[in-house]
Design a protein around this nucleic acid. Structure first.
Lengths: 173, 173
DNA sequence: ATGAACTTTCAGTAAATACTGAAAGCAGAT
DNA sequence: ATCTGCTTTCAGTATTTACTGAAAGTTCAT
């Protein structure tokens, strides 16, 4: 049984490491992804010091990334009565994780992108030359597509998990 | 009319710059995103030297990123008869751009992620302890969700643009 | 075989990003 | 008012990533 505990620790380590590498590819800081993986698979809440020890990182690093994860809504602060320390706990429901990531990426990345596209389009709305019209049209197409996709994402992310699955089944057999 | 040309150039510059910043947030190299923006809004094919001049970057940098974009299927090499030089042209259809990005991200990022999840799950399939079971279950849920989402993405990306729009309309009014 | 017109590679360098550790800040207990 | 236990900040440093420019490679014409 202690063998099982050892193997579990190894599997979890593997997961944390690889999730970190993946996060980096997605433009997310490696440590942040690792802490997320660690907490997603933690049987209990963890303190900053436990995270520091497990990942062998500094207090500053742990602190910053824990707070960023709270900002993304992917983990939350838990306090134990009688203890002054903060503990952290991850959202474990995958659908809920998806919803929160979707919501934040929209807010942080999609909305500003749409702003850019709209402003580049607006700046060329009155143009008469072939090139001016082509540019304006390209901005328009991009804007249309991104805003449409964003709306679809919103709709899906605001559904209950069960409903989303049913819908997908209906569409794709 | 020359005023219009100047304003167009400014709008295009703005687009290129901002697309680069956005790319960086998405884990894509800034120069690559800028070249993509430049070519998406280019009235004609462009040579490596033209890209170098427009963005004020070195030959090596231009070369590497142009080839990477070809690897993503977002631009293609065009040759002019009588000329030995290579020219580049971007895919401008937004739906097609979406499909190619979706396909590549699946191949490069989603599939390896699934591999990780499966292997971490498999390593704990036989566990009996509460913690072991919980970890195994978490991996299973993640795997299920990611593979399901990936399949949905595939289906959508393999549709014709018109069909996808119709489907979306049908679902979401 | 030589050279012209290009493409590709890569060692070295610059820039961006992430991390550390120590100091400062804060709040409740004494 | 001071101490204790904890959180937060940040200047300095390390690491990673991107870029340059020059040299080497390729291809085709002569």
């Amino acid at each position: 049984m202690s063998d099982e505990a050892t193997r579990l620790e190894a599997a979890r380590d593997e997961f944390v490491t690889r999730w970190g590498i993946m996060g980096a590819q997605w433009g997310i800081n490696r440590t942040m992804a690792q802490i997320h993986a660690l907490l997603m698979t933690a049987p209990d809440v963890m303190s900053t010091d436990e995270v520091m020890d497990d990942l062998e990182i500094s207090r500053g690093n742990a602190h910053t990334n824990l707070k960023d994860l709270v900002g993304w809504g992917l983990i939350r602060i838990v306090t134990k009565k009688g203890e002054r320390k903060e503990f952290f706990e991850a959202e474990k429901d995958v659908w809920e994780i998806f919803r929160r990531v979707a919501r934040e990426r929209k807010r942080r990345e999609i909305d500003p992108a749409l702003e850019t596209l709209r402003s580049c389009k607006a700046a060329t709305d009155d143009m008469k030359s072939k090139d001016g019209k082509a540019f304006n049209d390209q901005m328009d197409q991009l804007e249309d597509f991104v805003s449409f996709a964003s709306k679809m994402g919103d709709r899906v992310a605001s559904m209950q998990h069960g409903k989303a699955i049913k819908l997908a089944m209906k569409i794709f057999g």
